[in-house]
Design a protein around this nucleic acid. Structure first.
Length: 283
DNA sequence: AGTATCCTGGAA
DNA sequence: TTCCAGGATACT
């Protein structure tokens, strides 16, 4: 599922690829994924691409913002026009298949290519809102992990108030923005903390270790272009895979040996989420 | 604060 | 054929 590093990878790609491009058409194949009027965005230019947590904001020249959340299986694929005279609707080859794919929900046509919004599970969406309202709409999101607000003091304050398992607090977007299941598991391993421990019982030393681990694994994820694990839908906008799955410490490694101590990685269910950890390294 | 819900492909 | 993951939100 696209988490902060995956969305940031997409953001950086699109920033280079489509900023300055004008939206000349939009094809909505699933109204649920784009419930508004196409005319709200047609004719506008892409002014910039921003990210907040797992949310992507495509800012337009008409003071509107195209707000996208990819949820679990959303993809944004950029296909530059080749110049060849293909008939409209002609399928475009991509990643061993073709576009539009069965999961394609929206096709945004720009001057120099097409942006495909694919979303297998139909949970993800695109919505148009006034750019000035973005801040208010995302006000409930917690701090960005890379911002100066994400301090040990802040985390201590959050953790002190709840007996929830520490992993659930990491996943709570109102506490920290952008962490999903992969990076929560990885950060807890890196910090040597058992994901089931009540947040309020995590010591200040461990909290600082965890804060650093969160930043470390998110940076790793970005460096490797995100993770495209076996059952993950995530791919980069050029339809190539990220590589972070090759560097997982625990995620989806249950039954395999811990790289640090050799014990077998375990999988448990925590609040309905697959949770992976080393029983020896994480206490 | 805990639970159902959305949705689909793939696993069991 | 049934079951289930999985993020965020709407409920209870």
């Amino acid at each position: 599922m696209p988490e902060l590093p995956e969305v940031e990878t997409i953001r950086r790609f699109l920033e280079k690829a489509i900023v300055g491009e004008k939206i000349v058409g939009i094809e909505i194949l699933s109204k649920k994924q784009f419930p508004q009027e196409p005319k709200l965005v047609i004719g506008a230019k892409i002014a910039g691409i921003e990210r907040r947590g797992k949310n992507l904001f495509i800012n337009l020249s008409n003071s509107k913002t195209l707000w996208t959340h990819l949820k679990m299986s959303g993809q944004l694929i950029w296909v530059p026009a080749t110049g060849s005279k293909k008939r409209p609707g002609h399928p475009i080859p991509f990643a061993g298949s073709e576009l539009p794919a069965k999961s394609t929900r929206v096709i945004i046509t720009l001057q120099k290519g097409k942006l495909f919004f694919n979303e297998m599970r139909k949970f993800g969406w695109m919505k148009v809102l006034d750019s000035a309202k973005v801040q208010a709409e995302t006000g409930k999101l917690g701090p960005e992990p890379f911002s100066s607000v994400f301090t040990a003091e802040y985390l201590e304050e959050v953790f002190r108030k709840t007996a929830k398992p520490v992993k659930l607090v990491l996943l709570d977007q109102e506490k920290i923005a952008g962490i999903g299941n992969i990076y929560a598991n990885e950060a807890l391993f890196e910090a040597g903390i058992d994901p089931r421990r009540p947040a309020k019982e995590i010591t200040p030393e461990e909290i600082e270790k965890l804060r650093k681990a969160v930043i470390l694994v998110l940076n790793e994820g970005i460096r490797y272009g995100g993770s495209s694990a076996a059952d993950e839908a995530y791919i980069k906008p050029d339809a190539t895979k990220g590589n972070y799955q090759e560097h997982f410490r625990v995620y989806q490694r249950d039954g395999e040996k811990c790289h640090k101590c050799g014990k077998i990685i375990e999988r448990i269910n925590l609040a309905g989420r697959g949770t992976f950890f080393c029983p020896k390294c994480q206490t």
